[in-house]
Design a protein around this nucleic acid. Structure first.
Lengths: 258, 258
DNA sequence: GCCCCAAACAACGA
DNA sequence: CTCGTTGTTTGGGG
């Protein structure tokens, strides 16, 4: 369940470690949910060189020298690993073997991770690129949605998941139960500022704490979505509650617009 | 909001009073929700003779000598009237003028009543024709529906509305909140018996109280869905509650299967 | 109270 | 915790 900040750092580090490597061979353990075949993948990727690894929303995209793109969604429990002896890893979903003997492995004990070959470009904006005019339009179109559901809807904005949305809403002092259509204009400004601040700060924190990270999640710096805390930085009691079937942390500092 | 019993008596009485009458002229006040044109209606009906009036679920169907069928749904507030001076009536939806100078008027102050010309045959069975095997199959297919919602769903069974469903469920001692899929076999027998008994008894009551009725509703004989009662015939307090946004009357005699 | 449609919500599986 | 699908519920309008 890494979200935008984790995945941003992962892709930077994956670029550093994989750029220029040539794929020699591929192992692919397809579940039914992945529609491409091993043969198709092999043809598209084997022999070509990784040029870049970038984040696309909550997915990670490998860009190859021949223009092929391979997009990985880690879902809840997927992980990247770069190893010499990939045979030792369990729950492999796909393995790219490089000519230098190393391998990139995507593994997932739950088996939910997905792979897409040459996906369509995303039409939905990334959280770091969000504009006020876009957000206002969407808030009105989905005026009866809860704001938490709204912000984690990948058809609205890409990259925000269940943990960071709580941080963003606390920083903008908006209750997670507020209705999308009822957020006043000034709070929309606060919200957009919070989205960028929270996510960019988290990227910095993660880089500082583990500069080489390509898997797992670092969350100990979260100030409300954090089960080890009782109070927000401003001393208000943190409330833990299921909202829209998701564990949610918030405080009474956050205004309920409805 | 007449339901099956009222509409059954209406159609019998309309047959008695209209059979053999020839349509001379037609006035049609179409809302947007009715897709047929006055011209179309005129061509199909003018000059032909009413052969029969029958109930089709919650609709009333006029059958003409030329085979044309005109189906009327009264919705919440529609009414039939047979008059000499139809000009005096408000909220007319459609008026059929007969050669003998009388007119059949469908009026509706809310304007929700609908008219269909030569509709498809109903594929859904009428409440009075329901069989156990059919009901069991549907109960399983919609196993997570509330039984009250289920029985008033016109895609499941035709003719039961918000008032009579409460009577039926009380007579079969099934809580309106029971889940369709959890009703035991013996209770399904009770339910089917109650559907028929409640509806047929109501038809008799209505005929006795007002043998000529073609509009309005007679409900004073209902034993639970009746705001003037505090207790069921067996002395249990009647509970009034909104269930699935409908006013519902029931008692604690009714078993909750879930 | 009736019915239709669209949007929101819940449950389930992968 | 994630996403897609499916079915159910809710709200608005006619």
């Amino acid at each position: 369940m890494p979200e935008l900040p984790d995945l941003t750092v992962f892709s930077e580090n994956l670029t550093k470690r994989l750029k220029g490597k040539c794929v020699k061979q591929l192992e692919f353990y397809a579940g039914e949910r992945i529609k491409i075949s091993a043969a198709e993948l092999e043809k598209a990727i084997c022999g070509s060189i990784i040029e870049n690894v970038k984040r696309a929303g909550k997915e990670t995209e490998l860009v190859f020298s021949n223009g092929t793109k391979l997009r990985v969604h880690l879902m809840l429990t997927g992980r990247f690993a770069i190893v010499k002896n990939y045979g030792a890893l369990d729950w492999k979903v796909i393995t790219l073997l490089f000519e230098d003997g190393t391998a990139l492995v995507v593994s997932d004990p739950k088996g939910f991770a997905t792979i897409k070959l040459n996906p369509e470009e995303n039409l939905v904006p990334d959280a770091l690129d969000i504009t006020k005019s876009y957000l206002k339009e969407k808030l009105l179109k989905k005026k009866n949605s809860g704001i938490k559901v709204f912000l984690t809807d990948q058809k609205v904005v890409l990259g925000i998941g269940n943990a960071y949305v709580d941080e963003i809403l606390w920083h903008s002092r908006i209750s997670p139960k507020s209705l999308a259509g009822k957020i006043p204009d000034s709070a929309i400004d606060d919200l957009i500022a919070a989205i960028k601040k929270v996510l960019l700060d988290a990227i910095e924190q993660i880089k500082k704490a583990d500069p080489e990270i390509i898997a797992g999640e670092l969350r100990n710096f979260l100030v409300v979505h954090n089960s080890s805390l009782k109070f927000s930085p401003t001393g208000h009691k943190i409330i833990r509650e299921q909202i829209a079937s998701k564990t949610t942390y918030y405080t009474d500092e956050q205004v309920l617009y409805e």
